[in-house]
């Protein structure tokens, strides 16, 4: 058997998987979206129908905010943890990455424990200020939940990238007169850019599609995943649910592509 034949044969299982799990269901979904009473207009409705449009905008904004906050927190924490040796370091890393395995439901539950009606923050503010602060069931609770969900994934990527940084680069910059801020700006952050792009893609896409947390907290929050669920189970509006799903995928993909080309241009401009 020649090398080329072998390669072609090994492509067969891949082709089968791609077909069975990506191409077929995706095309089925796209067709289902256009098969309702609205026909192809179901896709247009995502943008034209105010309720759908607002939900879409909310979801994108929330996901962007979560991604940004995750990046900032994870970069600072990742740099600190990777660069310093201190007692309790292993415990801290374990704690930061612990939520990795939690399903969204558990994260939602923890947010309720923290900021729900009987939550910790409520208790404390009740006693201190006399007014109960409860934000678990609002966009604030969702933001916190998604943040909690995203940080472990991003922090691991950042830590791996920090570990690979050549310490000589930093020393060279310092020898040339760069203080701590200049070193961050000119050496560390540019070197971490690929890691930022990869991990913000993960963070953003996860936030766009997250369902468990939203479902657990669901009182007055509208995010796309919840909307799809409502259309599907309560409204039995399968076509709209399918159209919204496709819309969710396309918007997430488009924003990621945009971010990537923007970051690519930024790297090229700096380089």
């Amino acid at each position: 058997m020649s090398g080329a034949t072998f390669l072609r044969l090994s492509l067969v299982p891949l082709a089968v998987i791609v077909l069975a799990f990506f191409v077929l269901p995706m095309s089925q979904l796209i067709i289902a979206g256009a098969n309702g009473p609205l026909g192809l207009k179901a896709y247009a409705a995502i943008l034209l129908e105010p309720r759908y449009r607002e939900t879409l905008v909310n979801t994108v904004l929330l996901s962007l905010a979560v991604t940004l906050a995750t990046l900032v927190i994870s970069t600072i924490a990742g740099l600190f943890v990777q660069r310093n040796r201190f007692p309790g370091r292993a415990v801290l890393i374990a704690m930061l990455t612990f939520p990795l395995a939690f399903p969204g439901v558990v994260v939602g539950f923890m947010i309720i424990l923290l900021a729900g009606r009987q939550g910790l923050i409520g208790e404390v503010t009740q006693n201190l200020a006399g007014g109960k602060v409860v934000f678990a069931y609002s966009i604030g609770g969702l933001f916190l939940g998604y943040l909690y969900f995203s940080i472990p994934r991003v922090i691991l990527t950042v830590m791996a990238a920090v570990e690979k940084l050549d310490p000589r680069l930093e020393e060279a910059a310092r020898s040339l007169g760069a203080g701590p801020w200049a070193v961050q700006r000119d050496v560390i952050l540019p070197a971490l850019t690929p890691a930022f792009i990869a991990s913000s893609a993960i963070s953003f896409a996860t936030a766009m599609g997250a369902f468990g947390t939203a479902f657990t907290l669901a009182t007055n929050i509208d995010v796309l995943a919840m909307l799809i669920y409502t259309e599907f189970t309560l409204g039995a509006n399968i076509a709209m649910a399918a159209a919204l799903s496709v819309g969710l995928g396309v918007v997430a993909w488009a924003i990621l592509a945009l971010a990537r080309s923007f970051a690519g241009a930024a790297v090229a401009a700096a380089g």
Binding site: D166, R168, L169, E171, A172, A173, D186, V187, P190, A191, V267, A270, G271
Partner: peptide
């Protein structure tokens, strides 16, 4: 290792 900055010309 020279430690040249890869993000600069």
């Amino acid at each position: 290792s020279y430690a040249l900055f890869p993000n600069m010309s």
